[in-house]
Design a protein around this nucleic acid. Structure first.
Lengths: 93, 93
DNA sequence: TGAACATATAACCAATTAGTAATATGTCAA
DNA sequence: TTGACATATTACTAATTGGTTATATGTTCA
């Protein structure tokens, strides 16, 4: 495993390592939602949510699709989906 | 999902979000190793490795077992093991 | 065109943290 | 006991980053 691979994996984990971002993932894991919807769902500032969304989308964890003046963010990263499933499973204990 | 649960999960992910800690996990994932062994394996300072080991053990990700003047750290956290497996799987792409 | 709305970005601050150097603690063997 | 070894801890610095406020960009509709 090269240093570069390790760095990429670590970055992925680090992005999942903030409660606010986990909340955002929860908000979009069923279906894509607009920024405004997400802001309402996670109860945070629009600027703050936008910043997190940008990070997650840049990393390929979220998809970004513009429709008119709205932007829909969705979760379609296989790895992240599986990890979330693992965590949910684990929480059942 | 309560804020407390989110925080716990985020902490778990955050701990996996550093390349040096991933290297350490790689070093101990087969069998428990001593601190000195791990230091040699990951090519870092003893103090630095010790600090990371302490964090990982406190979080329950690593086990700690003292034998004479050596301390063996091992990986037996189910969740972390599964996540590492997922990542390896993913890297095959 | 201009106003209302949706999203993004920039500048900033406070808090966290990875790494280091030095030292402390604890254990064995001669 | 003393010296060598293994590990932990402390104090510190530099860099990263989450959150905020204010503003910019872009889109729709009257």
């Amino acid at each position: 495993m090269t240093d570069d691979e390790l760095e990429r994996i670590a970055t992925h984990f680090r992005l999942l390592g903030e409660p606010m971002r986990l909340k955002i993932l929860q908000a979009v894991c069923q279906e894509p939602r607009t920024v405004n919807d997400i802001v309402a769902a996670v109860d945070a500032t629009q600027a703050n949510v936008s910043k997190h969304l940008s990070l997650l989308a840049t990393a390929g964890i979220l998809t970004r699709q513009k429709d008119g003046q709205c932007v829909y963010y969705g979760l379609n990263d296989e790895l992240t989906l599986k990890m979330c499933a693992l965590v949910h499973e684990q929480l059942a204990d």
